[in-house]
């Protein structure tokens, strides 16, 4: 992992980059996200991380280098980054964030201190178990719910109002 950190010298940039248009993010080689800033600086491995994925979704994107140190944080990546950079970073983000979004609850049953879920997500169908829902069902807003299963896998319902009645009925009886 030697040659992947950022070059020495002035690595500090402003916390919020104003001229994100200079940021070129691209895959090189095929599986590695790389960042070139203007013409003078290049970071070989970039880990994009949402600063507050739940309360500010799609905003405040931090770019970290291979050591996990911040390169910069972009407040509005979708409008601030060049289009192809945003596409590349979005691709990397979907690989890094394995949270699933629930679109329908097929069944949910609370039994014997555990809750058994069967859901349909954007990634497909999935079964999971949650325990002690007081801690593992987190309301991020009155309609935004995050479920964390016994292994730590994450399932998000961005807006329970948008679920069908079949699904909401399960939520009502269980939570």
């Amino acid at each position: 992992m030697a040659n992947q950190d950022s070059p020495k010298g002035d690595t500090k940039l402003g916390t919020f980059t104003q001229d994100a248009k200079q940021y070129h993010l691209f895959y090189h080689p095929k599986d590695r996200l790389r960042l070139t800033i203007g013409d003078d600086r290049s970071v070989i491995t970039v880990k994009p991380t949402w600063a507050a994925p739940l309360s500010y979704p799609k905003q405040y994107l931090s770019l970290l280098n291979g050591k996990g140190e911040e390169i910069t944080t972009i407040a509005r990546p979708e409008s601030d980054l060049p289009a192809e950079s945003f596409a590349a970073v979005s691709k990397e983000l979907t690989k890094r964030y394995l949270t699933s979004t629930i679109s329908r609850i097929v069944s949910a049953k609370g039994e014997f201190g555990a809750t058994y879920w069967h859901v349909i997500t954007e990634r497909g169908e999935r079964d999971f178990v949650t325990q002690s829902l007081q801690e593992n069902a987190q309301w991020l807003s009155p309609s935004h719910l995050l479920l964390i299963d016994v292994d730590g896998n994450r399932f998000e319902i961005p807006d329970i109002e948008l679920l069908d009645t079949h699904s909401t009925r399960f939520l009502e009886t269980i939570l």
């Binding site: 992992m1 994925p53 690989k95 890094r96 964030y97 394995l98 949270t99 699933s100 730590g152 896998n153």
Partner: peptide, 10 residues
């Protein structure tokens, strides 16, 4: 990763 992991080879 968030909610999972990835095997990486150097």
């Amino acid at each position: 990763l968030v909610g999972g992991g990835r095997l990486e080879i150097v």
